[in-house]
């Protein structure tokens, strides 16, 4: 499992690098090399580091540990075919991590990043909707059961395409440079991660790599099914490129617009799953 963990970190960061490269090419910029995010992680870990004078020290450091820990746990849950509800829980608790990053330093920019992450709570509802829609069909939330259901009945992507779209929106809202990335937008310097520099930021980059890998892997396992390893990686790459197109071609929304759009989407999805539940 150690090998899988390290692979997930580096491949996730590589995907984020590809994300940046594709966005740059769409916008006709040369862009950084694809391994830039991996270099970033290493670069930050070599830098001078301290805990700000005003920070709440234990929380400032502890939240980095929690961030890496929860996503490693999520990776193991996905690999072992555990409950989808646990993945959902970890995804929601990532919000607390953002909040902790933002508030623990005492920086005004970090604080606004943290508050923004709290007000965009509606971005989690689509995930709950896709979980509920899946439960209606498979009668189980274990990822292993969902995979074996798809081997018999064909991919869920075809059965419930709108639930797949809901999960895709969730992926968009967690990708950097997307329309909903208000927590790290540049008018807040770097949002919630402004004051986490040096080694702390390196830890955050590790978490980002893991998070990207886990979310994409979950999407593939839940909506397409079990694929050979190389094909899984290829599908992840294709997914990232489509996400890059969305991120490159859409402007970042203002905080209130972002929350409104997310709430509307969440409402639509709730209606959809209600209809699905009545029909089945």
């Amino acid at each position: 499992m150690i090998a899988e963990l390290l692979f997930a970190v580096f491949f996730g960061l590589l995907l984020l690098g590809i994300h940046r490269k594709v966005i740059a090419r769409i916008q006709r910029r040369p862009g950084p090399p694809v391994w830039q995010e991996i270099l970033h992680m290493l670069k930050f870990s070599f830098k001078t580091t301290w805990i700000p004078k005003t920070a709440s020290a234990a929380l400032f450091v502890g939240v980095v540990l929690v961030a890496i820990g929860i996503w490693s746990a999520a990776l193991f849950v996905v690999i072992s075919g555990g409950s989808l509800l646990v993945i959902f829980a970890i995804y929601m608790l990532h919000k607390i991590v953002e909040h902790g990053f933002g508030l623990s330093s005492g920086s005004p920019y970090g604080k606004f990043g943290g508050v923004r992450s709290v007000i965009s709570a509606a971005s989690e509802i689509p995930l709950l909707v896709s979980v509920a829609a899946i439960a209606i069909f498979t009668h189980s939330l274990l990822i292993s059961d969902i995979v074996s259901y798809q081997e018999v009945h064909g991919p869920l992507l075809i059965t419930i395409p709108l639930a797949a779209i809901a999960m895709y929106v969730v992926l968009i809202s967690k990708m950097p440079f997307g329309p909903f990335s208000i927590v790290e937008s540049k008018e807040l310097v770097s949002g919630y991660k402004t004051e986490h520099f040096g080694v702390w930021r390196a830890g955050l980059e590790v978490c980002n790599g893991l998070k990207t890998y886990v979310l994409l892997l979950t999407f593939i396992l839940v909506f397409i099914g079990s694929l050979p390893f190389w094909l899984t990686l290829l599908t992840m790459l294709i997914l990232v490129i489509t996400l890059s197109f969305v991120c490159a071609l859409s402007p970042m929304l203002s905080p209130y617009d972002s929350v409104t759009v997310q709430t509307l989407l969440a409402g639509l999805m709730l209606v959809y799953v209600g209809v699905l539940g009545v029909m089945s």
Binding site: L5, T48, W50, P52, K53, V64, P108, T194, A202
Partner: peptide, 29 residues
């Protein structure tokens, strides 16, 4: 064990090979 050890490993490694510990400062304003 891995969930507990991996974050500690990442931060420990970073703190071991980082450049130096700087002087504490107030956040960027």
């Amino acid at each position: 064990v891995l969930v507990l050890a991996f974050p500690l490993f990442v931060l420990g490694l970073g703190l071991y090979w980082m450049a130096r510990e700087g002087e504490e400062d107030i956040p960027f304003l």
